[in-house]
């Protein structure tokens, strides 16, 4: 039986190929339980201003994400230019005591949340030069994916559909082309809506899937997290197993000889 390898990103190895966000949950308890049910080991967080006079007893997200259990992936969500994204990564590195792994996303427009590719390229170059390990959110354009890998990003993360849309893999052929040319792990980031979407991404040959809303916006996020874990695993195993060729006409599974008539 074909043995799977671990997901390897920036010299670190992960048994889980599901990466999850921590946004949009009801509370930290639900966040923690959903992440546990997902089996994810890489967990994204956002970096935001703290308010004057905020309640100091307010629960701390990082308290439910112990570093021995999870690899924190600070993101640059909400940044619309390279400069702000680079500043956010530097703040994250300071906040997390020199942590180098970041998720770069530079958005172009708040209706689609599609990446601003020119700004993403500028930010990626600057962050790689500044010794960050950059996992980069991008469009499903194979040429841009290649360019981002050449710049030195440790993972290229094409969207499957707009962030938070749950529309599933809208352009599987582009994702396949990106995977075929990949020199770094390809992780589908954004757009999956349910477990079959995650399975399809993995069946295409992705190295992993990053998701947030598909779990957090489910009626029962903890159960959906568990479903996603299974979807990822099933899709990965099916990819490794190698699916049968598609045929236009039927092919009987039972032998034709020995029938009683």
């Amino acid at each position: 039986m074909t043995e799977d390898t671990k997901l390897s990103v920036a010299g670190m190895e992960f048994g889980s190929r599901l990466l999850v966000g921590t946004g949009k949950y009801k509370d930290h308890d639900q966040t923690r339980l959903a992440i546990e049910a997902s089996g994810a080991q890489i967990v994204t967080v956002a970096i935001r201003r703290t308010n004057i006079g905020q309640n100091p007893d307010e629960p701390n997200l990082l308290d439910i994400l112990p570093p021995e259990k999870y690899t924190i992936l600070p993101n640059t969500a909400g940044c619309y230019n390279a400069k702000d994204a680079v500043r956010t990564c530097r703040l994250a590195r300071e906040l997390l005591d020199g942590h180098k792994l970041v998720k770069l996303e530079v958005l172009g427009d708040d209706k689609t949340l599609f990446p601003d590719i020119p700004e993403t390229l500028v930010a990626a170059e600057e962050l790689v030069k500044d010794d960050f390990d950059v996992m980069v959110y991008t469009s499903d354009d194979p040429l841009i994916a290649r360019r981002l890998a050449e710049i030195g990003c440790v993972s290229v993360m094409p969207l499957a559909a707009p962030i938070g849309s749950g529309l599933g893999i809208r352009n599987p052929y582009n994702i396949i082309t990106i995977i075929e040319e990949a020199t770094v792990p390809i992780i589908v980031d954004a757009g999956v809506g349910t477990a079959s979407d995650a399975a399809i991404a993995m069946e295409l040959g992705c190295d992993g899937v990053l998701m947030n809303t598909a779990i957090a916006a489910a009626k029962d996020p903890i159960l959906m997290a568990s479903a996603m874990k299974k979807g990822i695993e099933a899709g990965r195993e099916a990819f490794l197993a190698g699916r049968m060729p598609r045929k236009r006409f039927a092919s009987a599974s039972s032998p034709i000889e020995g029938t009683i008539f």
Binding site: V20, G21, T22, G23, K24, Y25, T31, T44, V45, A46, I47, R48, R49, T50, N60, L61, L62, I72, P74, N75, A77, L91, A92, L95, L96, I163, G164, A190, L210, M211, N212, T213, A216
Partner: peptide
């Protein structure tokens, strides 16, 4: 001056 913390995000 900016003072930031980590919060939930995807």
């Amino acid at each position: 001056i900016e003072v930031v913390v980590a919060i939930g995000g995807g």
